[in-house]
Design a protein around this nucleic acid. Sequence first.
DNA 1: CGGCTTCCATGAGCACCGCTCATGCAAGCG
DNA 2: CGCTTGCATGAGCGGTGCTCATGGAAGCCG
Lengths: 290, 290
Amino acid sequence: MSDLSPNELRVLVAVAEEQSFTRAGARLGMTQSAVSHAVRGSERKLGAVLFERGRQGARATDAGLRASTQARHILRLLDSMGSETRGAAERTVTGTVRIAAFRSAAAGLLPEVLDRLAALHPGLHPQVSIVRDVGRGSAGEVLDANADLGITTVPPTSTVPDGLIFNRLYEERYLLAAPAKAADPRRLPLLDWSENCSSYTRRWWTEQDWLPERRIMVEDDSVVLSMVAAGIGMAVMPHLTLAAPPEGVSVTDLGSTAPTRHLGYVTTPALARTLPVRALIRELRAAHAR
Amino acid sequence: MSDLSPNELRVLVAVAEEQSFTRAGARLGMTQSAVSHAVRGSERKLGAVLFERGRQGARATDAGLRASTQARHILRLLDSMGSETRGAAERTVTGTVRIAAFRSAAAGLLPEVLDRLAALHPGLHPQVSIVRDVGRGSAGEVLDANADLGITTVPPTSTVPDGLIFNRLYEERYLLAAPAKAADPRRLPLLDWSENCSSYTRRWWTEQDWLPERRIMVEDDSVVLSMVAAGIGMAVMPHLTLAAPPEGVSVTDLGSTAPTRHLGYVTTPALARTLPVRALIRELRAAHAR
DNA sequence: CGGCTTCCATGAGCACCGCTCATGCAAGCG
DNA sequence: CGCTTGCATGAGCGGTGCTCATGGAAGCCG
């Protein structure tokens, strides 16, 4: 009987996040003493020191970090059990599903998906968080148990972190976005943004017989778009970003050799079996089919 | 407090598999009565009937089937927590960590750190990007999510951008770099470079009884170094830049009043809780201790 | 240096939870 | 009908996990 009770899990998470026994206790509505006892008990059960106690509170050790992340995962599953089982009985999908997505997916893809989802499952409450699609991206959110499903562009396949499952949704083309008024958009500077994963478009550029004269780095893809609308330059952007181009932006297909990227989702095996996540995945796939 | 205890989860799994309260109890080493109580409690907590009781035992309902599946997942995670956390120390950290550093840190400090990191965590892939330590510097890279951790010199403390955490690594002395052949290096022009944060050395200069006759601004600290080697001038440079001085450069300590700068790192609170970043920070600290 | 504050640790005491035990009840079966 | 085989239920009890009170270590500050 060496596994931790839900309360102990909650304590671990709270302490890891608050970096203090006292604050964690306050947050959970229990005394500092109870937290201390609980942590001590958890450490004994797990056989590792989970927090370094010091003058300024408690910092998670590596073991503590792992444990608290795992604890978040477990608590999430425990939390979903109620709606999950009730849903099975009543044939409804209820509860919460937390989605992490990068900005353009959230703007271009999710509204439709969430509309359908809301229509089909009134009791399901999706939560969307925006994550920059760089670094660990949305997969990191899923790994840390901050999200149930992440929308992501295809990572180098070697990089799919263990413990996650990844599936492709569809392939997405890049298009040319230029000011509608521009006579020869190719003479305009190219607007690029940091999130634009180089490998997708860079390779394509090397095969082109024209190159932009200037390149302007911009913070964000939405800024790129409004700059295009203002006539400042042109850009090669994924279809999703251009789903609803603003006034004054003309979008041109780049032909069959256009650069593409793959869109997909990540989640955990356990979450992939839950009703809300399954319903969401179904709608993500359906959205593309239409 | 509506989530199930590990014991209740075990009971659900056992009953679902044994299709009998009595046998489930026997398997778990408890009485049939306890099983009955536990199942009843679970059903109340989840708000659904999990088993159909009948003459020939208990059959899981749809809800019960789903609950017991979920329970198996959770128990598996709980079970793995022990080994997972115990092994945290020896376990290899995997993933990617993106480091932004200014040139001399990348050249003088990182090789050693990355060597150690590679030895300890073969599955961890560090990526280094060189950033000029002016303007927002490496903190900007972290802010823009282009890097997970930035090596930086101490900013004016008021300037730590919110959302970032900054920590000092160590204090670094400035040294005098002069051509080895120079009879009196103090007569040579002072080579300065734009990245050289004025405040560190300017104050020191005001306290000196000698002043350089001329001052030459150079693009970059590496250029400064090769110009010193060529006998063009002398320079006051941080220790890191002079870690491996080229032929013909003699390095002199400036004594206890030497100007210093503080080296540190910036990252975000969320990233600071991830294992790759923590492993990196640990090695950064260890590198100095040696 | 000594009081003060701010952390966490620890022991005693108590309440409640979850177990067992004993028993009840329903349904099939000779 | 008893008898068997299943689950349900209430009483009672022990251990777990909480609070309360207190202790100890470590910075901080005049």
